[in-house]
Design a protein around this nucleic acid. Structure first.
Lengths: 189, 189
DNA sequence: GAACAAAACTAACAATTGTTAGTTTTATAT
DNA sequence: ATATAAAACTAACAATTGTTAGTTTTGTTC
């Protein structure tokens, strides 16, 4: 029996609880109860509560970093790159919406090394995003509003998808991608 | 000496700490240290940690409810109403960006009555928002994309302003309002 | 069925939590 | 100055926290 499998079950259960109440409000006894075992038994599979959090967050952050690097380094125009970023966020959200709650709300509870690593990845992600928009404005593909406002507006919507999409039952992923691109790029008016 | 004044100082300090670490991770000793007093002394001014949280959140939620009701009941078209909603969010964010962190991330730690009251207000706020967009689509003022996507997209940006605006030093409130309206309504392409 | 590893258990720990009780200090008004 | 109210303090509590040590159960392999 693979040790990774049971560990991953615990991490998945933890992600759900962290989404509902936040990292600090979830006790190891809460998590154990969700798994149907005693709190001490968790430690046969994981090293600490902190390890669970950092696994959830760092894995996702690396996924975004990898995806963004591929998009940024491709030879597409700014609009195409933005479309790929929207795709990336929707794909990750569909695959692991629970974990995204921790990434968005509990990253500050990471400890030293992982906190720095996360903040570095987040900063570089935003830099890449800003750069794509900047070049798009420069080439005339994107309107010349304040760049920070455009980056923030788009990114905040994409980052909050995890809260919203799981509650929608009638929206197919492909329709979501299509309409989200239209709304974010062309506006609603 | 007015008792409300010192109490409000504590609530303001708490809002800052809640924003940084979340409600559950902030201890009464943390809050006391930020105030330069001992934890027990806080209880001369407040009844409980929970009272602090509910004051922060309910006050803000009622502010949004009042604002939205005025906008929804006015005889303006959908576009004008949306512009007023954007204004409302920016005004509240400028006045109390710390408290908005609790409203967005720690509402689930409210207890029974206040939790229900908050959820009712939030639901009605979203209903009003949805209704404005719906009527706008009906009259042809707003494009007929999926309504949920348009509501979510706009609202998620407005709700996340508190995270972003305090870090921007070079953006004047009026410029923010103007560009935010353009970006949200007319898109960036 | 003996051996072994995986995964659960019980019991306990030291630290931290929100909060209370009772007391002392500080500031204000008469 | 004295009386009063506001606001701080010390000391302690009962409960809960993450985690460890040591033991037993469960399931698989030969």
């Amino acid at each position: 029996m693979r040790p990774e499998s049971r560990k991953q079950e615990i991490i998945n259960a933890a992600a759900i609880l962290f989404k509902e109440k936040g990292y600090s409000a979830v006790t190891m006894r809460d998590l154990a109860k969700a798994m149907g075992i005693k709190a001490a038994s968790l430690y046969n599979h994981i090293q600490s509560k902190q390890e669970i959090l950092s696994t959830i967050i760092i894995d996702l952050a690396e996924e975004f970093t990898t995806g963004m690097n591929q998009i940024a380094n491709s030879d597409q125009n700014a609009i195409q790159k933005l479309q790929n970023i929207i795709n990336l966020h929707i794909d990750v959200t569909l695959r692991n919406s629970d974990g995204l709650a921790s990434l968005n709300n509990d990253w500050m509870h990471l400890e030293e090394e992982n906190l720095q690593y996360f903040e570095k990845m987040r900063h570089e992600y935003e830099e890449s995003f800003r750069n794509i928009v900047y070049k798009g404005v420069d080439k005339g593909d994107i309107k010349s509003y304040n760049i920070e406002i455009m980056v923030f507006s788009t990114l905040s919507t994409l980052r909050t998808l995890y809260l919203w999409y799981p509650k929608q039952k009638n929206i197919d992923a492909d329709i979501l991608k299509r309409d989200m691109m239209s709304v974010l790029l062309k506006g609603i008016v």
